[in-house]
Structures are given as structure tokens and as C-alpha cells.
Design a protein around this nucleic acid. Structure first.
Lengths: 187, 187
DNA sequence: ACAGCGTGAGAACGATCGTTCTCACGCGCT
DNA sequence: AGCGCGTGAGAACGATCGTTCTCACGCTGT
């Protein structure tokens, strides 16, 4: 097993464990067990648990936003529908087994106060997400303020879906976003 | 110092520490130091750290919702303005020094996967909040669906304010809620 | 074939945490 | 006054965690 494969195996295990059980709850030994990569090698790939956490967040950010962008890109419809497609993607995500809310909100709640790296990663992730939503909303002819409002709805849907274990917030947020868009464009 | 005062001193210290730094980051020794209550007595007031965490969440839930309700009750205005007052109260909260987001979302992200008690406390808190918002929205003549949408906006504002360290999301969510209310009532 | 470097498995180390125990002290009751 | 229960301060204990070390093993180059 070369370094590249070891790295992805470690990151895959770390992502499943950190996301599923929380970061502090998961020891490096659990990552070793789930990845099959020896502790010694694990530490030469990632010099500390903090570095592994950072890598986990970084890769998840890239994957998550790429997944959303790919989904929206595949929607061949007017800009308004492309904005709403964000909430369809969220619904699919909420219904995935093992869904436990937004990894960045969770890790920020857990470590944001004590780890500037985690706080920064979460902030950057949300900034990018807000920027992306605002761009979609702008294409639908609504101002930036509407973009931020739509993003707030998405944010609320994520945490509420996590707390209640239901995907219904995706639909409710989608309806609200549609109403906001129509109100903002009609003006 | 009688038991009642010791209890509130412990709970005050626990709230400040758990909310400010996260639950797992704070040891019982830190609670002892901040409260001035000896470890032995601390454990006879709360038989375990889990029990103290539960008590912390329970008291914070009651205080938080009572504070919101008192603020809204003091607003002598039409029902629509009373709904929007929720977001004014949120703005004030966001601007308090030490604001670090919703304690229940944070603790759910940290321990929701491993502690049914924490998960349940967070779920109940949000349920009550949603019920309260829905009641305010109903008084303004909008359906329950609009109530849940407004609550999603509040939820999103909380997490976004925490992540960005800004109170602007309160205003943006307020504007969005106003638009949603007007659209829902006009129909 | 053989010396040597890197590897894997896991023990070991130091720190920390939740929880309990020790022990000397102060207060209330008779 | 003297006895005893409960208290406070902190040491102690067992577990766990992040990280490093040990050591035997297998592959590589000549």
C-alpha cells in the first residue's frame, strides 16, 4: 500500500468517524483500526491529530461543495429553479443514512472556541457556500440581500434536519426560498 | 453557603464554561475552580458530569425561552411586529460579548451522537422554540408552514452569526421573515 | 547472501479526566 | 467539655488519549 492509498484510507476512516461521532470522541486508535493504517505511518502522514482534523475538514469542504455544484449544474432549467435545486440536493443529503447535520457547524460547536484552525475552516466553508448561493440568486435576478436570506434558510434547514432527524426542513426552506425569490424579483 | 446557593454557583460556572469552551473541553476541576464549590459537594449535588450537563441545558433552555418571551411580550404592536421582534431579540443576543451560537446546536454537534440525553434536550428545546414561533406567526394570520419557515430563518441566523461573529444575520433574517409573512398573509 | 533501512504491531509514556478517598478541621448536640 | 457527623482541600485511582518507542521482520541493492 503506497502513501497515496494510505492517505485516502486514513481520510476516509477519519471522515466517517469524526462526522459520525464527533471529533473529540474519536481517538487516533479508532482511526487506525478503521483505516488499517498503522499508528506510526498515520503520524508520518499527518503529524498530529489536529493536522488530520484540518485535512478532514478541507477535503470534506471540497467534496461537499463540488457535489452541490455538480447537482445544480445538471439542472437544465431557468435560474430560479436552479436556486431551488439547492434545496432538492439538501433533501437528498438529509435522507442519506448517517446524516448528522453540517460537519462544519458541528465541529465549530465542538472546537471553534479552542481551535482557531477549526474555526477558520468552518468560517471559510460557510463563506464559500454563501458566495455560491448568492451567485445563483443573482443569476435569477435577485439582489445579494436575497442571496444571503436564501443561504440563511439553507443553514437553518441543515441544523433543523439534524436535530429532528427529518428531511422535511428541506422542503419548507425550499418553499420559503421560492417565496423570497418571487418577492425580490417582482419588485 | 447552603445547598441552594452552591447549586446556582455551580450551574452559573458550568454554564459559562460549557457554553464558552465546549463541554468536553471543560473538566470538573475547572467547574470547581470557577464555582468555588468543593469537588465532594459538587458530586453530591450532581452525581456525575452528565447530570450537570443535563441540568445546565435544562436551566439554559428555561432562561433562554423566558427571556425571548419576556422581550416579545413587552412589544406593544400588531402581531406581525411581534414576530419580527424575535429577530430584534436575536440581534441583541448576537451582540452580547461571549456570544458563541446556540448552546443546544453546539452541544448537539459535540455530543448528540453519543449522548441521548444531550440529543433529547436539544431536540426538546428546538421543538419548544418552533412551537412558540409558530404561535406568534399564527397570531399574525399566517399558516403553520410560514411559522416553520420563520423559525428556519431564526435557526440559520443563529449559526451564521456564530460562525461569522456578526449580528448582521439577525437583520437579514428579519427582513426575510417580514417578506414571508407579507406573502403568506396576502394570499 | 547479507547488511541496512523502513515497516507493522503494539507496548510504553506522560498528561488529563471523571470519580472517589483521606484526613484534619469546625460546628451542633447533650 | 467532648463526641460525632459533615465539610473542604486536595491527593489518589483507574481509564483514556495523543504521541513516541521497541523490536522483530521483510524488502532492496550489490
Amino acid at each position: 500500500m503506497d502513501d497515496g492509498e494510505a492517505r485516502t484510507r486514513v481520510l476516509d476512516a477519519a471522515e466517517e468517524l469524526f462526522y459520525g461521532r464527533g471529533i473529540q470522541t474519536v481517538g487516533m486508535d479508532a482511526v487506525r483500526g478503521a483505516s488499517g493504517v498503522a499508528l506510526r505511518r498515520l503520524y508520518q502522514l499527518f503529524p498530529s491529530k489536529g493536522a488530520l482534523v484540518e485535512a478532514y475538514l478541507l477535503r470534506r469542504d471540497a467534496r461537499w461543495r463540488a457535489g452541490l455544484a455538480a447537482y445544480v449544474d445538471a439542472v437544465d432549467a431557468p435560474p430560479r429553479e436552479r436556486v431551488l435545486a439547492v434545496f432538492d440536493w439538501l433533501r437528498d443529503w438529509f435522507e442519506e443514512p448517517g446524516f448528522r447535520g453540517c460537519a462544519f457547524i458541528n465541529s465549530f460547536g465542538e472546537l471553534g472556541a479552542t481551535s482557531p484552525e477549526v474555526a477558520g475552516a468552518a468560517r471559510r466553508h460557510k463563506e464559500e457556500f454563501f458566495r455560491y448561493v448568492t451567485r445563483l440568486v443573482a443569476a435569477a435576478g435577485a439582489p445579494d440581500s436575497a442571496g444571503r436570506q436564501v443561504a440563511l434558510l439553507a443553514e437553518g434547514a441543515m441544523t433543523t434536519a439534524a436535530l429532528t432527524g427529518s428531511s422535511a426542513p428541506a422542503r419548507e426552506a425550499r418553499d420559503a426560498a421560492a417565496a423570497l425569490l418571487d418577492a425580490a424579483v417582482r419588485r
